[in-house]
Each structure stands twice: as C-alpha cells, then as structure tokens.
Design a protein around this nucleic acid. Structure first.
Lengths: 337, 337
DNA sequence: TTGAAAGCGCTAACAC
DNA sequence: GTGTTAGCGCTTTCAA
C-alpha cells in the first residue's frame, strides 16, 4: 500500500500536487498530471479508504442487518443488495440479528459509530413481536438513515421497500376460489410477523369478497418450524374435505405437496396448493409447486438504490415506501382457469 | 456522535486527558476519571471507528468473500463467521463473488485498500477451474492475511479450514458396501471443484479397498443444476440394477429420493441413498435422507478464530490447515448395519 | 502551476 | 496528574 506521501517523495513534488493530479484538477499542469498518473499506476497506488472516510465523514459503506441468513428469502435479498451496492460503489457490512432484538441493537450501535453511512434492514422477529423501536429512533436522531424492507415498522418514519403481501394473498386465494375450491385452509407459521398478518388478512378478505364461497377459512397455526411436517400431516388426517391449501411461508408449500401425496390426494385434481416460495424449493416438489414469488433480488436492488439516492442527495428527501411487484406463478399444483 | 474534543470542551480539560481517562490510564487521577466517564456515559460517547482504524492501521474488520450466498452451505458458514466475529469484536464486510473470478478479484482489491485486516474466503468456481491465483499472491504480498475454507488452493501458502472430503466420501461408500450394495452410483455435479475431486476419489478408493465389491463405480456427471432432476430420472430409467446412490452436492440427495420413489423403488430396502447435505433439506425428504453433514457453522467459527489469532499475534505464525469433523448421519434412506 | 498547512478523531510520547 | 504535540492518509483552502 503506497501512500500519497511516498508517491510525492519519489516524484519530488508535494503531497497536494499528487493528490490534485490524481483527481485531475485543472490547477495542475498536464505534464505533471501525466507523470503522476504514470507513477501511480506503476506503484499500484490505491487511496486508503479509511483515510478518505475520516476526511469526508463518508464511508461509502452500508450496514445491512438481516434476521437470518439461513432463510432463503433474506439470502436472496442480500444477493440483490450486494450486487447493486457493488455497482454503485458501496461496500456492505453485514450483521445477522439472528431474529433477536439484542443482536439487532448491538449490531446497529456498533456500526453507527462512523462505520456506515446508513442502514438497510429487516426487523428481527423479537423486535417486531415486542414492538421495540427505540433503537431505530436513536439512530435516526443521529442523522444516520435507515431503510426497512419486508418486515417494517409502522411507527418509524423512514424509507421502506415492501411487497404488497395483502394483495398477493388476496390474489392467490381468489384464484383458488375461481378454481371452484370450497374448503380452503391457510397454513400460518409466521402469524407474529407483519407480513404474516397482511397475508392472512388478504386471504380472509378474498373469501369475504367471494359471493359463492360460504365456508369459513380454516387456519392452521404452527408456531415451530420443526412441527410443520407433523402439523400438516395431522391436518390432512383430520380434515378430509380440504381441497385447497395456501402456505404463507417459504417451505410449507412443498411439505404440503408431499403430505397430500402421502394421504393419497391427487394434485391438482383433488387439491390445489399455493406457497409463498422461491424457486429454490422446486427441485423438491413434484408436481411443481405453484407459488407467489416475491422478487427478493429486486427488493435488495431497490433498497440500495433508494438508500444511495438519499445518501448522495444534497437536499433532504421525503421518506417514501416502494412496493415491489410479486407474481403468481401457477405451475402444477393448481388448476388452470 | 459526540467526539473527544467536544467532551473535553464541556469538561474543560484537554483532549488527551479525556482519552486517557476513558482508557483507564494510571496517569490520570481517580476523580478525573470518574468525572470523564460519567460525562461520556451521559453524552453517549462512542469512539469513532474510522479514526481509530486510521490511527492504529487496524480496522477490526474481516473481509469475507463467498462464492454464493444462495448455496446453503456457504450461508451457514457465513452464519458461523458472523457469530464468532461478533464475539471477538470484529465486523465483517461481505462480498459475493457469484462464482466468478472477476468479482472475486474486484471485491478483494477493493477491500485490500485499508478496509479490512484480513480475508476469509472460499474460492469461486471460475477461479478454481482456471486455477487463477495471482490475486491471492498479490494480497498476501501486501501483508494482508488470507484464510481459505472449503475450496482451497494447493499452490497458495495460507491458513486453511477444510473438512476431510476424501475420508467422508470414503466412509459413506464403505457403509454402502457394508450394507451389501453391489451397484453404487456416484452423482457428480461439482467435478470441477477441489472438494468434488476429493469426494470422488474417496468413493473410488473405498471401492478399491473393498474385497468383495467387484463392479466398477458408475459415475453420473451432471454439469448444470437445472438438469439434476432429468439426469437422475434418466439414470433410474436406464440402470435398473442400481442399489445405492452417493450424491456429493447438497441437493441431489433429496432429488434422488424423490426419483427413486417415482420409479417404484423401496427405500431403503431396494436402494440406499446418501447425500452431502445439510439438515435444511430434510423437511423435503421422505423418508429422511441419510447424509454426510459438514459442520458448516464450525467451519465459520474456526476460520474466524484462526484469522483473529493471526491478526492479534505479535510474532509471525506458521500457516496451518485445520480439518473440521464431519459426521455420517444415517437416517431412513440407508440400512442399519 | 505548485506547495504549505489545517483538519477529520484518535492515541501516545514527551513536556510541564 | 494534566496538557501539548505529532502523526495516521487524505483533501482543500490559501499563499507563493
């Protein structure tokens, strides 16, 4: 790592001349600029990012706080964040809250000390359930912008990137009704999360709005991920009339497919199944699961774009909420209609 | 963000007094220390990490370069890296190489400019296939340590954390032979990777070492992930004698289970299947896949420990290679014996 | 056209 | 026991 100073010494000019030359300042003579640039290339000079950060009070780094990297949705958003931020010349520094409030607070406090220019985050389950928002306010007070995606807080004024979970679930449910299904069940293992609530409400509303649908929505709540298989198995055992399943997390859909097969149901003749899944689970699903696809990569990209726009804007910008499209991918576990 | 200077002003002492007091220097009087610490707490003083980095030429940050965050193995290693580094007081800056050499080089070069103290990484597929190692050498020359995990390069001298892929595959294959299987097939879709080669060799060696196993190893090569289902389907169609399958990546195992069922095979009576998988795929496998489990979290943790040890050591340390245990988890797709 | 100097926030050797 | 000062690498105002 050669420094400006060393370059200046070898070239026998001053530090500031080198600095200006490298930045193409019009103050410096052409010949000098050429000489300096050549030497810089020769010695592979790279400006020290830390010094630049200190000088500019800008790190060109975004802190990313994610509840769990083992959740494929978040992994995919992170992929989008990484890609877009690299494109815009930013680094990302990642902290995993592991769904706990304490690690979320700790990670953010750590990074708020000049390590990052802003945060892109999704709220941990614990913070969302307990409605803890003080740490967000404290950071925003310190003029460090926060952008929340997917799991957001109503009570925090900041940029947000979400998908229209209500509408997505509404559409999926409407499709099931249009197929002629009469006994729809909602499998809910994320009822505590904001997105879980929106999805459930969308489902309920679709049923309300359907003129010819008379049955109540059956809701199966499964709190623990490890109970999913047993719970869905039990559901099929005890409810012989079920003819449609909407799964609002990203793995239950495939499990429902496997369990329905086990119980001798013909998919999609006897039963339709739709999941909120990404296509990474498709290799495990036979027939192929119909899904509501959240464009996770797009969520990540949009988040970075909004954040960078804010960071690089001279004037203050209004907070905005961007809604990313979803798509209803009808594959082989639903009827065409 | 209050600074030392501001703190010093409000307390009417010098900056260095405040600095020393906060660091508990014995030079400073007890009363002063108490006063300063109280004020620091009151104003929520946090030392600026960037200034500290510049001053100490240490960022307390580790650069993590990962081929793909969508691969569950790497996600899990990252989880371990995050956890352990937080514990040891380090941040991580993540770059995803996306399996390309160019992004790997670019990410590392970017971070090598004073942003990180060292790198923890796994080589991208492209760099490994093309045997590109110049960028590693260049960074090591600049005295920035690199630690490679899982996919490592023979020709680079650095710390390494691996699992004994050869032995793992050897053991799994030996188990299949002990079960009395006569027609073992290896499904290989990572033959270009170092780990793929080790696993294959382990399998081959186990067969060589088995006295009573006479058949040749059948190897099915599938280059593209999207062809896995079709390829495995075809395999079962064309080879009716297959009675054991070893899958050396982390999703083929479950696909093999599903396909074997589709072809009317009884698992594990007619056929045994073992995968190199993590337990995240188990919900999709029925019967439950027997697996070789790589302790991905442990790999991440060990990597951080080794790296931090090197970063904080006064004297130079020898490069070491640490081998992390694997375990052969026999579940329901193999016979007990 | 070039250079000197201040300052970003912090620590530590050295003075007082 | 407390303060002054230099310096980490860089940019930028101001002076020459």
């Amino acid at each position: 790592m050669i420094t400006l100073k060393e370059l200046a010494n070898t070239l026998d000019v001053s530090i500031s001349t080198v600095s200006k030359a490298l930045n193409g300042s019009s103050e410096i003579g052409e010949k000098t600029i050429a000489r300096v640039k050549e030497a810089a290339k020769l010695y592979n000079y790279q400006p020290n990012r830390v010094a630049l950060s200190l000088r500019n009070s800008k790190t060109k780094t975004i802190g990313v706080i994610i509840p769990s990297i083992l959740n494929h949705f978040f992994a995919k958003v992170l992929y989008g964040i990484d890609k877009e931020s690299a494109k815009l010349g930013y680094n990302i520094i990642t902290c995993l809250s592991n769904e706990t409030c304490s690690k979320e607070v700790q990670g953010m406090e750590l990074l708020a000390n000049g390590s990052v220019d802003g945060f892109i985050m999704s709220i941990s389950e614990e913070a969302q359930i307990k409605n803890k928002t003080q740490h967000f306010k404290s950071i925003i007070d310190r003029k460090i912008p926060i952008l929340m995606f997917d799991r957001v807080s109503e009570s925090i004024a900041c940029d947000k990137v979400i998908i229209d979970d209500f509408q997505a679930a509404y559409n999926a449910t409407s499709h099931l009704i249009k197929e002629g299904r009469k006994n729809i069940v909602l499998i809910n293992n994320i009822e505590e999360l904001s997105v879980g609530k929106f999805r459930k409400n969308g489902c309920i509303q679709a049923i309300k709005d359907a003129k010819h649908y008379s049955n109540e929505l059956l809701e199966i709540k499964i709190a623990n991920k490890n109970d999913l298989e047993a719970g869905i198995d039990k559901m099929f055992k005890e409810n012989k009339v079920i003819d449609a399943v909407l799964c609002i997390d990203n793995i239950s859909g495939v499990i429902a497919v496997n369990m329905a097969k086990k119980h001798g149901l013909n998919i999609p003749k006897d039963i339709s199944i739709i999941g909120f899944s990404d296509d990474n689970v498709l290799p495990f699903s036979n027939p192929k699961l119909s899904t509501i696809t959240q464009h996770a990569v797009a969520i990540g990209e949009a988040s970075v774009q909004m954040m960078v726009k804010r960071l690089e804007s001279k004037e203050p910008i209004e907070y905005t909420t961007k809604t990313i499209d979803y798509s209803l991918n009808l594959r082989d576990t639903t009827l065409q209609c």
